[in-house]
Design a protein around this nucleic acid. Sequence first.
DNA 1: TAAGATTGGTTAACAGTGTTAACTTAACGA
DNA 2: TCGTTAAGTTAACACTGTTAACCAATCTTA
Lengths: 200, 200
Amino acid sequence: MNGEELSLREKILDTSRHFLFTKGYSSLSMRKIAKEIGVSATSIYLYFENKDHLVHTLIEESVEELSRAIEQSAAQKISTIDKFEAIIRAYVEFAMSYSEKYQVIYVMLSSEMSRYPKEKFRKARRGYALLESVIKKGIEEGLMELDEPQIAAYSIWAQLHGVISVVLNQRLDSKIDRNKFIEESIEHIVQGFLVRITTA
Amino acid sequence: MNGEELSLREKILDTSRHFLFTKGYSSLSMRKIAKEIGVSATSIYLYFENKDHLVHTLIEESVEELSRAIEQSAAQKISTIDKFEAIIRAYVEFAMSYSEKYQVIYVMLSSEMSRYPKEKFRKARRGYALLESVIKKGIEEGLMELDEPQIAAYSIWAQLHGVISVVLNQRLDSKIDRNKFIEESIEHIVQGFLVRITTA
DNA sequence: TAAGATTGGTTAACAGTGTTAACTTAACGA
DNA sequence: TCGTTAAGTTAACACTGTTAACCAATCTTA
């Protein structure tokens, strides 16, 4: 049945993602994945062309979910400034709630970049494009004052990724409260891009 | 002789780094490295405990060079603001001049994070610590206005890494001039952290 | 100078890897 | 009921990291 089909495929993806996350790429093995699920190693090849393809699917799937989360979150807001903040919050929210999926994107996409097909990569940038368009609108509306929206958008991703990395890799000073750190970072980032209103 | 010793070890490191960079981790093989150099695979084990250790040495070595470059560059400047900019420029300079070494740090450190010994990781943060201390001084001197120097320092690394990634992975729009992009990004980042002087 | 130890490599072997080809077995359609 | 398809299996191949045992120079030193 269709339910079963999907199930094994899904099991493979889940198990791979977990192994990738806990043991690192270098000890990700088709046989181990199969053994964990209780199936023969070659069964994986019924659903994925090869190991590369399996990992790429993992990335693609995560990117898709993240993009969707961002789009939905932005769609719920009306004003540009609310959209701007919503995108940022959706991104962080996703990273914290589905940390394994988030890590798959950044860990694997960087280490296996050269093997990842370029056309899939382009698709991966929906969320980025959305942020860029919101920033452009923000400039038009006089909310932001930036000469390069492209660079600004990239800079925001990078800042967010920095904050998230610190938290996910547990490199945060134990004295610092996690949620407070995240909240303050988001505010700092958002404020850093808005035109400062001088009450004079 | 010592010259010879160093030579093979160095050859192994160079070849590994290059393979890592061009083919990705998943096709980095001890036998291939050895073959490229013209030596037996087991010879590598005379210089490195195992594959993990080899890769970790690669990371450590790159981190060390980057840290040194940053420290030297900062030491040449006197004022806090010059030190601040010097650190940023040294970082970007290193990434552009030794892109393979730079990529080793960020690519491998993220994908094999869980296997990388924590105490080596702490050492890796000299450059980061230096930037943080410069920022603190900048706040004291009234050059910057920030509530969280730790977060600010991290944010700067992240922004820089973002800019560098775009350039190194050749994902920059072909119409945009590379050097101009870098220069404008640096200025944008630096200015973003300084107190805005209002000529009133 | 001869004997022993050290240095810097080698080859052979083992267990584990991705992947392919050929086989099985169950379910379904005619 | 026969043939086909689906979903899996086992056996095999070439390659992987790694270890153990070996070899040939070179250095030390009595």
